[in-house]
Design a protein around this nucleic acid. Structure first.
Lengths: 131, 131
DNA sequence: TATGTGTTATAGCATTTATATAACAAAATA
DNA sequence: TATTTTGTTATATAAATGCTATAACACATA
């Protein structure tokens, strides 16, 4: 698991953490069932407070990416049956991006190209680590 | 121009304002060259402080959606040649959404369907106001 | 027993958010 | 000309958020 924090970013650390872990899961750098570092361990590795990591983990748990218990720590538990459950937030985020694209004069096809490029990028990184 | 603020939302008011105006431009409810209400007027209409509106306008200006001057107030100035200029942020946002989609087990095709649905939704609302 | 989990509580500090006034120069209007 | 309206800037205040520090708890493991 590779996580890099930009301390100069205007994005909150716990948000960066949450996003990077989601990316790591998406590119299968971490897979279902894998254990994540403990909140204290990861906090020490990143030079960050324990509560900041804990906050990220709690959000990921609430979003259905992780399961937390005292036995096995933080475990990746991606629910692949989630398709229809909580896509509402994703729909809204998508709508926001599409609105911005329209304002920039992008066509539907151009935006779908952007999407497939993003998809490829993630999958390619995945392959990169496999080889 | 229709703007609704959710005062109970965890999203900052000036962010909500910024997003709603982008939506209004996307659905052509406001068009290139149109004047927006003055910061004081809109603030009063929404029951919000002047500086909050000013912050939203300043961001929209910085992002290239508006032009501000004392002559005409806030004017929509969408640059349709922006396609390649500042798509980097959009690419990153897209990548984040795609990563989330992958984690939920969505295929590329399913995500592209979500995108085209979002596109239609915005365009349909536009038609609704035209009729 | 000692250590390592997630979890909770409290506190402090810096930054952000939103507000309230106030004032300015420039432009529009009466 | 005088008044109003524009964006803009400056201070100040209160509340919320982000991050840290320290400590403790119940539970599980070695």
């Amino acid at each position: 698991m590779i996580i890099e924090i930009d301390f100069n970013s205007d994005e909150a650390i716990y948000i960066q953490l949450r996003n990077q872990i989601v990316f790591d899961i998406a590119r299968e750098h971490i897979k279902d069932g894998d254990s994540l570092p403990s909140v204290r361990q990861l906090a020490m590795d990143l030079g960050v407070n324990m509560h900041t990591v804990n906050k990220a983990y709690a959000i990921l748990k609430q979003e259905g990416y992780l399961q937390l218990d005292r036995r096995h720590g933080a475990v990746v538990a991606v629910n692949y049956d989630n398709k229809n459950i909580d896509c509402q937030i994703m729909r809204e985020d998508m709508k926001m991006i599409v609105a911005e694209g329209i304002c920039k004069g992008l066509s539907l096809e151009e935006m779908q190209l952007l999407l497939s490029q993003a998809y490829k990028e993630i999958k390619d990184i995945e392959k990169l680590f496999k080889n």
